[in-house]
Write a protein that binds this DNA or RNA. Structure first.
Length: 111
DNA sequence: TATATGACGACGA
DNA sequence: ATCGTCGCCATAT
């Protein structure tokens, strides 16, 4: 057996990340690092990005509410524009450079 | 086992 | 405030 009882396991970790992302309210955004941290996975920001990248196109998860620590939409081939539209559709202001003011739209866990 | 890569983050110039 | 580097972690080769 590879995984000790104390080891959450890859699937469990993915579940936790999904749950966190799903808890981000409409009109708010969170950073990859923040999601990782709140999910009890400090320093795993990239894992969050990797997990979201695995999501099926028809996933119900609000993946578009997750942006990087600089407040910008992480550039990956082509999907950037769509994410911008989705965010604007729920009231998040995104400037032409794909930037969001985290002080105004950033999500604090206490919400 | 070693190396490269990536939806990231912190720092310094 | 912006850009370049380096650090971190998990996967893929």
């Amino acid at each position: 057996m590879k995984a000790p009882a104390s080891d959450p396991g890859r699937d469990a970790i993915v579940q936790r990340i999904r749950a966190m992302v799903d808890s981000i309210p409409p009109g708010r955004v969170a950073t990859y690092g923040q999601v990782a941290r709140e999910a009890g996975l400090p320093r795993r920001a990239r894992l969050v990005g990797r997990t979201l990248a695995e999501l099926p196109a028809d996933s119900r998860l609000p993946w578009f509410r997750v942006i990087n620590a600089r407040g910008t939409i992480s550039p990956r081939g082509g999907g950037e524009r769509r994410q911008r539209n989705l965010l604007r559709a729920e009231g998040v202001e995104v400037d032409a450079r794909g930037r969001v003011d985290l002080r105004r739209f950033g999500w604090a866990p206490r919400w």
